[in-house]
Design a binder for these strands. Structure first.
Lengths: 248, 248
DNA sequence: TGCAAGAATACTGTATGCAGCATTTAGCGC
DNA sequence: GCGCTAAATGCTGCATACAGTATTCTTGCA
C-alpha cells in the first residue's frame, strides 16, 4: 500500500527509484502509428454532456433524466451518473437529493460575477505573461489573432468565437500557472453557455476586434498596464453584449 | 419536458406560475423540530474522502482502492466512485484510465501557483469588500478575528487554523460574488492539505497574527489599498512557511 | 541467482436489478 | 366542476454481478 506505483504504468513510462519519469510519450515519429487512444468513456460522456449544456440542447432548469440521456448516448446509467457528478463539481449542474441533476440557471448577477472573476484572472495572467512569455509564445498568440481576424473578415462567427476563446485561454496559459488556467477555464466554461447566445451587432463586433488588436499590441510590447486596461475594457464590453436577455 | 419543475419541490417551496418562490426555509421557530436533514450519501462520502485526503490519511500518490475504501466507509463502490469523480473535478485526485484514481501530488511550483491565484482573488475580493460590505458584515469578521486571537493566545493551533481559513473565506464572501467564492474555496481546498503541514515557529506565527490585525484594521477603515497590500504580504508569508518540505 | 513467460489474482469499468422516494393519475366525496 | 386522497407509474439511489484489463505470483530456464 505504500510501495504502489513503482512499476511501469504505460509502455512509455519508466520509474527509477521512486521518481516516475515520463518519456516524451509519442516518439514524435510522424509515420509511427498514432498514439493508442486510451478510450475513456468517462471523458467522452463528460464532454458530450458539457457540450449539450453549452449549446443549449439541455436548457437551464432542465432536469436530467438518466434513463433517457443514457439511452440517447448509448451508455448505461452508471458511467452517465459518474459524469453528471463530475459536471456538478464543475458547476454546470445542481444535484438535488432524490431528484437527480438539474442544469444550472444563471441570473444576470451571477453572470456579471463570473465576468468579473474572469477579468481579475486575465489581468493577473496578462501582467505575468508580459514578464515571462517568450517571443515565440507571443508569436503563437499573434497567429491565433491573425486567424481570428481572417474569420472576422470572412464573417465566420463560429470559428471567430472559438479562436477568441483560444486567445484568451492562451494568454492565461502564458502566465505558466496551472491553477490559474484551471480556475479560468472553469469559469469560462460556465460562461460559454451565455456567450453562445450573445451575438452582438456589427459595430460592437468591430469594437471587440479593435480591442483584440490592441491587446496583441500591448502583449507584444510587453506593456502590462496597457494590457490590463484593455483586458478590463474588453470584458466590460462582453458584459454589455450579453446583459440584456438574462433573467433578473 | 418543458413544463418540469413547476410543482412543489419541498414542503416550503411554492411555485406560482413559472417562478419558484422559496419561503424562508425553517419558520425560524426555535422549538420547531430541526429541518429535515435530506440524507445525501453522496455529500457524506465526498466530505469524508476530502477530509481523508486533506488530513493526510490518503497521502499524495496513493492509489485509491475502491473495494477497500468502500468497505472502510461501509458503502458500495457505486456511490463511492461517484464521489471520486466529484473530487477529480475538484482537482484533489487524478483519474487514470483503467487504473482508477490517484491522490494528486503537488510540487513546490504548483503550490506557489495556487498561492498566487489565492492572492489575486483575495485582493480583488478585499477591494470589493471595502466598497460594499456593511459594518455588520465587517463586525462579523472582526468577531472571528477576536476568537482567533484568543486561540492564538491559548496556543490552540487547530482552532486557530480553522478560524484563519474562515476569516479569509469570510473576506471573500464579503465581495458578494458567488463565482469568486467558488473558485477561491476550490483552490483553498487544494491548498489545505499543504497548509496542514506547515507549522511555523512562534516568531512567524506572531507575524501572521500581526498581519491579521492590520488586515482587520484596513477592512474596518475600508482602506482598499492597504488591505490589498497586507493580503499580498500575508500570502507571501504563507508561501515562506510551507515552501520548504515540498517536492521540487 | 536472475530473468522471462504465462497463469493466477486483484481491481476497475460497465451493466443490471431492486428498493424507496417523487410525481402523476385515477377515484371519490362534496 | 373542484379539491382531496390513494393507487400507479416513473425515476433516482444504491448494491451487486460480470467482463476486461492491470498487476502479481509462479514456474521454467539459463
Amino acid at each position: 500500500m505504500i510501495d504502489l506505483w513503482v512499476r511501469p504504468a504505460y509502455p512509455w513510462r519508466i520509474s527509477s527509484k521512486d521518481a516516475v519519469v515520463v518519456l516524451s510519450p509519442p516518439p514524435a515519429n510522424p509515420d509511427a502509428p498514432a498514439r493508442i487512444e486510451r478510450h475513456s468513456l468517462h471523458d467522452a460522456i463528460v464532454s458530450r454532456l458539457r457540450d449539450m449544456i453549452i449549446e443549449g440542447h439541455l436548457p437551464p432548469g432542465t432536469r436530467i433524466n438518466e434513463g433517457q440521456i443514457g439511452a440517447q448516448l448509448g451508455v448505461s446509467r452508471t458511467p452517465l451518473r459518474e459524469a453528471i457528478k463530475y459536471l456538478a463539481s464543475e458547476g454546470l449542474v445542481d444535484l438535488v437529493p432524490s431528484r437527480g441533476a438539474v442544469v444550472k440557471t444563471f441570473g444576470a448577477k451571477e453572470v456579471l460575477d463570473m465576468i468579473e472573476v474572469i477579468r481579475t484572472l486575465e489581468q493577473f495572467a496578462g501582467a505575468r505573461a508580459c514578464q515571462i512569455a517568450t517571443n515565440q509564445d507571443i508569436g503563437a498568440i499573434r497567429d491565433l489573432h491573425d486567424q481570428m481576424i481572417a474569420c472576422y473578415e470572412a464573417g465566420d462567427r463560429l470559428q471567430y468565437y472559438k479562436l477568441n476563446q483560444a486567445i484568451h485561454s492562451g494568454i492565461v496559459a502564458l502566465a505558466d500557472n496551472a491553477a490559474l488556467s484551471d480556475v479560468h477555464s472553469m469559469v469560462q466554461t460556465r460562461l460559454k453557455r451565455i456567450r453562445f447566445i450573445g451575438h452582438e451587432g456589427p459595430e460592437k463586433w468591430a469594437n471587440a476586434v479593435a480591442e483584440h488588436q490592441e491587446m496583441i499590441a500591448a502583449l507584444e510590447s510587453r506593456d502590462a498596464d496597457r494590457l490590463s486596461a484593455i483586458l478590463g475594457q474588453h470584458l466590460t464590453l462582453a458584459w454589455e453584449r450579453v446583459k440584456d436577455g438574462l433573467s433578473p
